[in-house]
Amino acid sequence: MNSLILREATRLLVALMLLFSIFMLLRGHNEPGGGFIGGLIAAIAFALYALATDAQAVRKALRADPRVIAAVGLGLAIGSGFLALLEPAPFLTGQWTTVGDFKAGTPLPFDIGVYLVVVGAVLTIVLGIKEQQADVEDDPVEPEDRR
């Protein structure tokens, strides 16, 4: 797909979708939404971007390898569970503290971890497929043969 209008429109759309995904993530504890939904929206945004441009542009926009994003998410989710051991309570027991009027607790970093895993895992697959496709199409001769 190589369309100038699509490319430019996607830029705007992607930004809006990312914002929306974070909105969905953060409101998830009280209204419909959450890490899974937010993560999926963000993943779709980047996937759309990959369709409009190419995988390389998405990698540049992401700045981090999607696998790393998934790993960081998983680490965040696990890490948030370890806080409970300080109390001590069973692993992953929600720990809460009140900051002014606002309740802050470990479920939020956990949900952010879920968000990151979903984004990272989905984009790992999407970008991987996309790059391999591009490889096969543009360059039927494989790299080893070019020596």
């Binding site: 959450g34 479920p107 956990f110």
Partner: peptide
């Protein structure tokens, strides 16, 4: 401390499953 019960199940009550 959440009003969306589904999300509270996912990230708190059954967080180990979600993990």
């Amino acid at each position: 401390f959440g009003r969306n019960i589904v999300n509270v199940i996912l990230v708190d009550f059954r967080a180990l499953d979600t993990l």
